[in-house]
């Protein structure tokens, strides 16, 4: 439960106006720092919800698949250039961001992950790194400004951030194939 409290503190901190203003002023920080931190805040708060609503999770997310699909949908949605723009200009979308990333992505991710079979986990690793790779290509190669609010050079920076994220996930995935954790335990 201590974790849930930390998650709540992080959640509130991220929503403080000066913090959002600073985080959203740089495109790469908006997408690669603020948004993942919202997801992490949600993951930290998960035990609270699992304790409060045990039936909800066992009924709707018994094998983890619905949860992980919800997670993927939310993540994909927030990767579109258009949604970033709208979060900056339309308050309702900004609020949706504050709600969706922790509670519709972070919570289901943590609840699902332990329930998933290795095969499904592998699919998630591969598709996430592929999607990030595609986003990298999109943001680096696009000759046009994709967001009204961010310059082209920021867009390219974000693209390189995606290169590293895709690489991290992929290397981690490869590592799980070669290093059998149980062998070392």
């Amino acid at each position: 439960m201590k974790q849930a409290a930390y998650g709540l503190v992080l959640y509130i901190f991220l929503m403080l106006p000066p913090v959002t203003a600073l985080a959203e002023s740089i495109m790469a920080i908006h997408m690669h720092m603020q948004m993942p931190l919202f997801v992490i805040a949600g993951m930290l708060m998960t035990p609270f919800f699992q304790k409060k609503f045990p039936n909800l999770f066992s009924k709707w997310n018994s094998n983890g698949i619905p949860g992980i699909i919800l997670f993927m949908i939310i993540v994909l949605y927030w990767m579109l250039p258009r949604t970033m723009d709208e979060a900056l200009t339309i308050p309702a979308v900004e609020i949706f961001k504050f709600v969706s990333l922790p509670f519709l992505a972070g919570v289901p991710l943590r609840d699902s992950w332990k329930k998933l079979e290795t095969r499904v986990k592998n699919i998630i690793y591969i598709s996430l790194s592929a999607i990030f790779g595609f986003m990298a290509w999109l943001y680096i190669a696009s000759p046009n400004q994709l967001c009204n609010n961010y310059l082209i050079v920021e867009q390219k920076t974000l693209g390189w951030g995606f290169v590293f994220l895709a690489a991290c996930i992929f290397i981690y995935f490869i590592q799980t194939l070669f290093i059998d954790e149980t062998e070392y335990e």
Partner: peptide
């Protein structure tokens, strides 16, 4: 504590969070 695979990846992610923006610029 023994999951070095994970910690190295997290470290690389943190390094890229810190360095991608200034280096690209």
């Amino acid at each position: 504590t023994e999951r070095w695979g994970l910690w190295v990846i997290v470290a690389i992610a943190v390094i890229s969070m810190g360095y991608v923006i200034p280096l690209v610029d």
